[in-house]
Each structure stands twice: as C-alpha cells, then as structure tokens.
Amino acid sequence: MLNILWPIFIIISIVYAVISGNIENLNNSIFESAENVVEFSISLIGLTCLWSGIMEIATNTKMIDYLCKILNPIIKVLFPNLKENNTTKKNVMMNIIANILGLGNAATPLGLKAMDDLQRENKKKDALSDNMMMLIVLNTASLQLIPTTVLAIRSSLGSENPSIIIFPVWIATICAAIVGIVATKIIINMTNKKRS
C-alpha cells in the first residue's frame, strides 16, 4: 500500500508547492521532518521499552490463563460454533488477549495462526467462515487496554497529562466494537440465509 501512497504524497506535494509558490516552505519542511522524527523516536523508546517489559512479565505468568477464563463466556457468544478446548480456540483467544494487552507484534502471528486453523474447519474454502469474519472484525476493532503508542506520542509532544485520553478511548473503542460485532452478526445471518 505504501509503495503506492508514499510516492503519490511526495509527487503531489512537490507539484502543488511549485504551482502555489510554497516550494521554500516545502524544502524547509523536509529537513525539519527528518530531524523531528529522530527526537520523536527517541522519546518513543522509553515508553515502548517499559511497556514491553511489563507485558513480558504478564505473559510469563498465569495472568494469561485468568484472562482466558474471563474471556471464555464472551468468546462463546461471539464464536458459537468453536469447539471447546482445541487449539483453534486457544489461538483465537491468544490473539484477542494479545490485542487487549497491546502486544501488536505478537497479535498478528497468533491471529494468522488462528485463521489457518479456522480455514481447516471451513467448509467453503474460497469464502470467509462465520468465525473468520468475527475474528477479523475483532482485530480491526483496536481492543487495546492501554493505547501506549498514542500515550508515547502525547508525552513526546510535551502533554501536561498524556493519560487523559484513556477513558475516552475506551468508550469509543467499545462503541466501535459493538457496532462491528452486531454488523458482522447481521451479515452472517443474511448471507447464510441466502446460501441455504
């Protein structure tokens, strides 16, 4: 995607700057941005290290098992035809937990593993199964408990209170997730009726 977007951004910027006489501004911004990103990344390192350290502790304890137990009833509602106690269910759960804990790097491989498992159980190999749709929607819902990246951005830009956004983020995330889940359930029902 960025192979297309990135050159478009740069080319239209330069062409537009030449036409509108903003080329000096644009030239200055190249240096400014390239310099700013260093400062920005260095301030990102602190919080990112802290959080991956804390999350390493969480993943090395039985915390994950507790979270699985808490999530189980919700999983049963969202994925009604997932069999109990098999690896598919475990991978689906681990993916969701990794998302909640903000372990972006771990969440995607787990999610793809779960997709692989679900594809094996899928009766129509060329179309997404009901469970796959739900898994994808949950992964596009940003279920993160602590939005560390935004917190790092805010603190690097000198916010007086970087954390102030956490509760508003929860409200927005929960509403978005509910709409996504309900829409998916409706689509599943509609497309299944049409098929049968």
Partner: peptide
C-alpha cells in the same frame, strides 16, 4: 493469509465500526 477472495461484506462491518469509533 488463507487466500480467500469471497469476504462476505466484512469490509462493510469493519468500516461501520471505524466510522462509529
């Protein structure tokens, strides 16, 4: 990752969630 082309309007559901967000 599972080479599926028929996505059954998953995009609609996800974008609705985004707009809601």
């Amino acid at each position: 990752s599972v080479r599926i082309k028929k996505t059954r309007f998953i995009l609609v559901a996800s974008l609705l969630a985004d707009i809601t967000g």
